[in-house]
């Protein structure tokens, strides 16, 4: 059996506050192959922090510890900042939440995508140009020559997020973390963006961690789901078996989802006394 792409065991992330250190991720464990893993949970459940600690992006005074945090045999926590830079972008990449804030406002789209590529590979100018245009084409941008010259404020949210995906996938990483990639977008373009991610991830045989608070969306695009609450995993199941989830938190979340044609007058509210929650 080949070793998994990513192994996480007992991951803890903590930040100091006035009343001592607060753990936002409390002993998370999972393994990931070249598959699509969904992490769902409410705001503050620690899902984004999990994504960032895999890239070692938690900055001081935040602190990350783990019994194992291994990516393709590399111990992430052991890597120096310089060694990490060779991993970031090139081997593990992350699509951020809102293209309005996550793209540099004073660089053109083309320059930003080029930067992701040339940071890791020495390529000729013409080749870089060609790779950018191909990549923009791959994220279904029809006139890549024109778009490459635009600034982020000149593109729509959906296009911005496709540009983000192009930028993060152009060095051909093996693992993509998508941190709420569609929560800043209109519902009408959410599916489009996720289809693009899904298509590229499948085609290149990459691993995907899709972080979201949208259960339906995650169960549609992932093979396996982790449900997080208050820094812990409360449920792990295959995407198709979400309906059979056992944990009261997951059941509560599922019960709170409205269904078309239903006749409930009120959606139930989570009853947090049922489990050892916050």
């Amino acid at each position: 059996m080949t070793s998994p792409l990513l192994e996480v065991e007992n991951l803890r992330v903590s930040f100091p506050t006035h009343s001592g250190r607060v753990e936002v991720v409390k002993g998370l464990s999972f393994t990931l192959g070249r598959e699509r893993l969904g992490i769902v949970g409410e705001s503050g459940s620690g899902k984004s922090m999990t994504g960032r600690s895999i890239l070692k992006l938690i900055r001081k005074p935040g602190e990350v510890t783990a019994d194992t945090l291994r990516f393709d045999g590399i111990d992430i926590l052991d890597q120096s900042e310089k060694q990490m830079r060779a991993v970031r972008g090139a081997r593990i990449s992350m699509v951020m939440q809102d293209p309005k804030f996550s793209l540099n406002p004073v660089m053109t789209v083309g320059e930003q995508i080029a930067e992701a590529l040339v940071t890791h590979q020495k390529l000729g100018r013409r080749e870089v140009q060609q790779r950018i245009l191909d990549m923009l084409h791959a994220v279904r941008i029809n006139d890549p020559e024109r778009v490459a010259k635009l600034y982020p404020h000149e593109v729509s949210g959906g296009m911005g997020q496709r540009i983000m995906i192009a930028m993060m996938l152009i060095p051909e990483p093996e693992l993509l973390i998508a941190d709420e990639p569609t929560s800043a977008l209109d519902v009408s373009v959410q599916a489009q963006v996720l289809d693009i991610i899904d298509d590229l991830v499948t085609r290149k045989g990459m691993g995907l961690i899709l972080i979201s608070h949208d259960l339906a969306l995650v169960s549609r695009y992932c093979d396996r789901i982790l449900v997080m609450n208050a820094g812990r995993v409360v449920e792990e199941c295959a995407a198709g078996q979400l309906e059979q989830a056992q944990h009261p938190y997951t059941r509560g979340l599922l019960a709170a989802m409205p269904v078309i044609d239903e006749t409930r007058d009120e959606l139930p509210v989570l009853d947090r006394t049922q489990w050892a929650g916050t």
């Binding site: 991993v87 972008g89 951020m96 996550s102 540099n104 930067e115 992701a116 890791h120 983000m164 993060m168």
Partner: peptide
Amino acid sequence: EFVTTARVKG
């Protein structure tokens, strides 16, 4: 956020 983006790119 775009500074984090740059760091993510390595």
